[in-house]
């Protein structure tokens, strides 16, 4: 037997073994799916599919046979990041990819969605709108989101008290969902806290298509001691319901960004909304005592 034949035999053997292992790897890593017969296929409807967005990612264990399941669970619970998602070959599983796209879609929905018309009335808010005429204009023209036209300023003059201690403003900002999810708990908790400390709160204003800077215009017009604006944060892939509160003492046109105080990350997984309301009430009290916000407030 020549050397060539020997090598050929070895190569053949190695190739055969590689095929075997490759098969094994695929069998081990892919979650087996039920084969679908033609009969079943006929009955397929949309509601057969699980809602991937409904899965709690931090409790969703995708690694099929973890060496240390308890530790794996602990690690998943320690972070909302997408860790331990397993793979198929070098790519993520279909589940993972679809969920990622679903979360991205949800974030887009939060930005593009509108707060329902009746929302303002439900919480006795005075509704106004900035100079933006549509969501697209709002997204492309941040400058217009900081301005009110004469008509809307007139609404404020007529319907809102001047010179109150605290003027509350609610705005859709970059997430309409954040407003709907947090305001029902945050607002009453904050107002209860302020009232119990004897702090007068003006009529709450709801501004559509608003940026943080809208507080300058409102401050200039109504001359409250403090303006607090509650608005939806730009959504991420973790949550679309996060809300921020920006607070300006003596808010006026031309005030610096560094003069604003912010409390962010108000949502179920961060600072819960009712507790945030209570925290903000206390913070406003301290701001009124210190007569300053932003870097001037320590």
């Amino acid at each position: 037997m020549g050397v060539d034949t020997n090598i050929r035999l070895i190569v053949e053997q190695v190739l055969a073994e590689m095929n075997q292992t490759a098969k094994g790897a695929v069998d081990g890593s892919v979650i087996p799916r039920q084969p679908v017969t033609s009969e079943e296929q006929a009955e397929f409807t949309d509601d057969y599919l699980d809602d991937l967005a409904g899965i709690d990612l931090q409790r969703y264990l995708q690694v099929p046979k973890p060496v240390n399941a308890e530790l794996y669970k602990d690690m998943k619970l320690a972070t909302p990041s997408r860790i331990g998602v397993w793979r198929t070959g070098v790519r993520p599983l279909t589940d993972t990819l679809l969920r990622f796209r679903a979360d991205h879609a949800m974030a887009q929905d939060s930005v593009l969605g509108e707060v329902p018309e009746k929302f303002a009335a439900q919480y006795n808010m005075v509704p106004v709108v900035t100079k933006c005429s549509s969501k697209d204009e709002y997204l492309t023209r941040p400058d217009l989101g900081r301005l009110l036209d004469a008509e809307n300023i007139e609404i404020l003059r007529k319907q809102c008290e001047k010179g109150v201690k605290v003027q509350v403003v609610v705005a859709d900002g970059l997430s309409s969902k954040a407003v709907e999810a947090n305001i029902p708990n945050l607002l009453p908790a904050m107002i209860q806290g302020l009232n119990s400390m004897g702090i007068a709160v003006g009529t709450t204003i709801f501004v559509k298509y608003a940026r943080v800077g809208i507080m300058d215009v409102i401050g200039e017009e109504l001359k409250p001691e403090v303006v607090i604006i509650l608005l939806g944060e730009r959504p991420g892939l973790g949550t679309g319901e996060s809300m921020s509160a920006y607070i300006g003492y003596n808010a006026r046109r031309g005030m610096l960004e560094s003069e604003r105080t912010v409390v962010s990350n108000i949502h179920k997984g961060g600072l819960p909304s009712a507790e945030a309301g209570a925290h903000l009430a206390d913070l406003l009290k301290r701001i009124l005592d210190a007569k300053a916000t932003g870097v001037n407030f320590k």
Partner: peptide
Amino acid sequence: QQDIGKVLGQS
């Protein structure tokens, strides 16, 4: 245990 101490206290 839940994060509600302040709002419950104020209430």
